[in-house]
Design a protein around this nucleic acid. Structure first.
Length: 169
DNA sequence: GCGTCGATCTAC
DNA sequence: TAGATCGACGCG
């Protein structure tokens, strides 16, 4: 069992994603209680050219954090009620991120944010124990498969067809 | 300043 | 299949 270092995220999201599958997402709640959730479903969003990526229209207040060093947390509100959890990848100036769509026993990105009690206060924090959200590797290897991403039809081809969603098999 | 809409989920 | 619910963004 070891804590995954921030540098793990400072490379191409398509390289990080397969290694992220099966890792343990750890959360320390307000009351000090610690829970661990195995990551079972994620999606990669790759830079300004990827029309499904929020950063495809450039640097804004919301997407700003995606332009920073990998290892930061990107949170955003969707449909007025769900907080989506994302991990920033790559380095300064290269916007990309990985959306956590599901963990063991919890399916759906909206439910993950709710179960882990995450909101905008986590925007811009780092994935480290000091910030109450971090990653651990227990050596477990989770079998997975890739499929197109969900809910991004507006992006059009070829982006809707990219097999950038990873799910447990 | 105002209208539109989204990387969702639940219930009718 | 529609409704909840709100911040970001486009338009002007």
């Amino acid at each position: 069992m070891s804590t995954v270092p921030i540098t793990f995220f400072q490379r191409d999201p398509l390289e990080v994603a397969p290694e992220l599958m099966g890792k343990l997402l750890c959360r320390r709640f307000e009351d000090g209680q610690i829970e661990r959730y195995r990551i079972t479903e994620i999606e990669a969003y790759c830079g300004e050219t990827d029309k499904a990526c929020h950063a495809h229209k450039g640097r804004t207040k919301r997407t700003e954090i995606m332009y920073h060093q990998g290892g930061h947390i990107y949170m955003y509100l969707i449909y007025g009620m769900y907080w989506m959890l994302n991990f920033v990848t790559e380095n300064e100036g290269t916007p990309s991120a990985i959306l956590i769509r599901g963990v063991e026993n919890i399916s759906g990105p909206g439910k993950v944010g709710k179960a882990l009690q995450l909101d905008k206060s986590f925007y811009g924090k780092l994935l480290q124990p000091e910030d109450n959200l971090w990653l651990e590797d227990d050596g477990y290897h989770l079998p997975f498969q890739t499929t197109p991403r969900i809910g991004i039809n507006y992006a059009g081809a070829p982006w809707i067809n990219k097999p950038w969603r990873f799910e447990a098999k």
